[in-house]
Design a protein around this nucleic acid. Structure first.
Length: 189
DNA sequence: GTACAGATTGAG
DNA sequence: TCAATCTGTACT
């Protein structure tokens, strides 16, 4: 069973639930005739204007974050530290600037370290600026698939998000990072 | 305009 | 432990 996730997957549920639901789904990237796919094993939720760790905190709009204000199911990709791309999927309805950061993938081939971090997975899948705003429900080069993998509740670990100490103790302690227990492709922190 | 820190990574 | 090196923000 291989089904591309439809718009409703991204729009019809709270972002925190979406971050959990994406675990076990497959991110699929078509590069010419080649297809690279990886199981999503780690995510983080960024929950809009109230979330001090979010780029849209306070309802702020910048050239970088504007796609977050559009409907769910789009790509929000941006550069950190001047060198690494970060892949986020927008969630919710238009006007609700929330997203899920994809932090790690488990590839079917290659070492577990191939895509065990947000920057590394973008490098592996050759994702950069040209994917900004890409619609995952219609794109011919990037989408998310349900391949029938079922994740039990006990397999999901909730933990604090990574690298957002600047947001202060309250927001950096929210357990809005989710990963598959014991999976070797989860990023090391 | 300048300064500085950041949703990271891998080399030393 | 540290530096690579864009983007956004807080200043002058």
């Amino acid at each position: 069973m291989r089904r591309r996730l439809p718009r409703s997957f991204f729009t019809h549920r709270p972002t925190l639930d979406g971050a959990r639901a994406l675990l076990g789904k497959y991110l699929v990237r078509k590069i010419g005739r080649q297809v690279r796919a990886g199981k999503i094993v780690e995510t983080e939720a960024y929950v809009g204007p109230k979330d001090r760790a979010s780029h849209t905190f306070g309802g702020k709009v910048t050239p970088r974050n504007r796609v977050e204000y559009l409907e769910g199911g789009l790509v929000y990709i941006y550069l950190v530290y001047g060198m690494y791309w970060q892949l986020n999927l927008t969630t919710g309805r238009a006007g609700s600037p929330e997203c899920v950061l994809i932090r790690a993938l488990e590839s079917d081939r290659g070492p577990a370290t191939l895509a065990n971090g947000p920057g590394k997975l973008c490098r592996w899948l050759r994702l950069s600026k040209s994917f900004y705003g890409e619609d995952l429900t219609t794109s011919a080069r990037l989408w998310v698939e349900d391949r029938g993998v079922r994740i039990r509740k006990e397999e999901v670990v909730a933990a604090a998000r990574v690298g957002i100490d600047y947001a202060g103790p309250y927001w950096s302690r929210r357990q809005w990072r989710f990963y598959l227990r014991g999976n070797h492709a989860v990023s090391t922190y």
